[in-house]
Design a binder for these strands. Sequence first.
DNA 1: CTGAAAGCGCTTACAG
DNA 2: CTGAAAGCGCTTACAG
Lengths: 338, 338
Amino acid sequence: VAKSTPGRHVSITDVARRAGVSVTTVSHVLSGRRPVSEHTRQRVQRIITETGYQANQVARSLRMQRSYTIGLIIPDITNPFYPSLASGMQEVLRTGGYDVIICNTNADPEVERAVLTRMVTRRVDGVAFAGYYNHVREVGPAVKVGIPVVLLGTQVPGPGIDVLSTDDLAAGQIASRYLIERGYRRIGFITGPAGAGPAAERVAGYRRALSEAGIRFDKTLIAREEFSRVGGASGIARLLDLARPPQAVLCTNDVVAIGALDTVRGRGLRVPDDVAVMGFDDIDAAALISPALTTVSVIPVQQGRALGELLLRRIEGPQPEEPQRILFEPFVVARETA
Amino acid sequence: VAKSTPGRHVSITDVARRAGVSVTTVSHVLSGRRPVSEHTRQRVQRIITETGYQANQVARSLRMQRSYTIGLIIPDITNPFYPSLASGMQEVLRTGGYDVIICNTNADPEVERAVLTRMVTRRVDGVAFAGYYNHVREVGPAVKVGIPVVLLGTQVPGPGIDVLSTDDLAAGQIASRYLIERGYRRIGFITGPAGAGPAAERVAGYRRALSEAGIRFDKTLIAREEFSRVGGASGIARLLDLARPPQAVLCTNDVVAIGALDTVRGRGLRVPDDVAVMGFDDIDAAALISPALTTVSVIPVQQGRALGELLLRRIEGPQPEEPQRILFEPFVVARETA
DNA sequence: CTGAAAGCGCTTACAG
DNA sequence: CTGAAAGCGCTTACAG
């Protein structure tokens, strides 16, 4: 067995020469796309293992016009949702021979743009893009050259653009229904400052559940706050100070809910007896705090798998297909706070 | 402005033809490596923007024998340490033109091996590898062909292998010192089942701090448990049931500490007055639980940056250089439980 | 200031 | 059953 000097990759030509055959033949024993006589096959195989030959994927990509690479562009890899998504994605993509390049943008449109064009430069075979807003425009350069793209967290697909997101309206609705079923009728909602996006959808779902149950919507029960722990703390304070305070409050996400629990605890109130609290997202901490937070969850790994499958179909499946729209149904994780 | 049909990438040849120059010239206006007359430069530039030409990175990689890609191989992307690490890494690598391919192995040696050879197949310019054990061997295929590799969470470098990890012994030591400074002398430690690895290092640091302070090591104060919440819960139960229970207990990680707090709360004890509790890692939940967990932290983003810089030096710097060993000093994050 | 040509390492029609 | 050759899209000595 020859020891190769570091830094030197052995090429298919090296193998061919040592085996006394053409590179064509070596290529075919590798791919199995053409029958090769048993004798030469074994001979080539032996040389391959002797030399430790590993086909150069870069060359292969250039020739085959396929990089076997997917770009995943996300605002914040530190938000646990995305790593879970990525892991689901990889799980299915890896079996197809694809690897994924993850790019963090910090939700900076500048970076988003730069990273996107970089991905087309790398000739990725598909991209999943979670932008901060203005999705469709940002993704133009990829669409234009025919790279399949799926937009994350958006609901309206377009030409060359699939869409995958969690059904936030449904999330607000099932959370509210859960509370209503448990006898709460006066339910507050701590939401964010903006009038659009997931938070607004959740509020819409809440209103829908209310009207289903014949409960009148009372806008004094809506508190608009920052998406943060202190936002939650001050939001619930305002709600509890109302002449007729709510018996339960929905918080636009788990961190806000944890903030709400801070003031509840500070006031010596019991949860859920004096006031029930519920969040959205099911972050790790939701299960770890005490009392454990009741919340609504999606399964990001599952979304990742669906994402991977969609991409695979787009890349390898028969074209063209209608733009897809995948919506994920959330569900309640019942714990101790509601 | 011509609209290209989807799926068709424009190549440097297209640009050259339309500009009436050679591909050589186009290449040089792109790279700036050779002066080009202002006139033709502008002309070429115009065609480039008109056509939206983006150089094919795959072809460039093949020619330049550099993929501008780094492989990051980790056991669990869902463990928040790694995303933070990755983001620090990317931050520095991106400026050098490198992207990173993240591969999840689920700590499966089979997958680790497969993924590693896949990375060499892709001709990554460097790899960072966090294996479950048996590091050096697993990484052989990359070292053999001269790809710079840095092993994560290991302390001994080798030929062609750099090493980067947090100083777990120091972690145990500073945590213990912190407790000792606050007057605790009878300190317990809930550790894992194994006698090696980070957990064992932390215990070693604890013993060192004890002896520095002239406190005798008492092995009844060491509880061996699973690395889990229930492990923490039962570990502290045993410790508290001792004839002379500890006044403070160190837990091998934050989740174990949270488990310990479960039983402390269950017994109606006050923290830290009746018993202080301290963890390691500073997971998100540490700050979110109540009382907030005192723990020891490293800054993973910072490790990621150092990792990126090391890799960059290895790839682009003057070779060869001694195998590097980078150790990160942890620090106490003082909160409410100790 | 510019271009023709070689070559990076593969795959795959084409030919025998 | 096998091989010579073209070509994927670049960069870069070499030459003028």
